[in-house]
């Protein structure tokens, strides 16, 4: 057993946990969190792809993971803004605004 197998399995497991919960959880907010978890799982796969036992990791996958993190935070921000806007829209709908 090596760190590679441990964290490789962790990555795949995180991805599966995230994927499952992104599909079944009842609230949009939690689905967004679940997608973030799944994306961390994918990040693990790339990080172990870069890892070398003796040190001197491959910098390219690291750059890819950083890009992936930034892309996902952007998408998350938009999704959360939609959640807030929907909340506001529903609140105004229940009020007696014309």
């Amino acid at each position: 057993m090596t760190p590679e197998t441990i964290y490789g399995a962790t990555g795949i497991a995180l991805f599966a946990i995230g994927l499952y919960h992104a599909l079944v959880l009842p609230s949009a907010l939690r689905r967004i969190v679940a997608l973030n978890v799944a994306s961390v799982g994918a990040g693990f796969v790339m990080v172990i792809a870069a890892w070398r036992p003796g040190g001197g990791a491959d910098p390219v996958p690291h750059a890819l993971v950083i890009t992936g993190i930034v892309v996902l935070v952007a998408a998350t921000a938009v999704a959360l803004a939609l959640v807030r806007a929907l909340h506001d829209a529903d609140t105004t709908e229940t009020d007696d605004t014309p």
Binding site: T2, E4, T5, G54
Partner: peptide
């Protein structure tokens, strides 16, 4: 399964 990793890069 659990094959050894490919040839690793020698230490720089």
């Amino acid at each position: 399964p659990f094959a050894a990793a490919g040839p690793d890069l020698p230490q720089p």
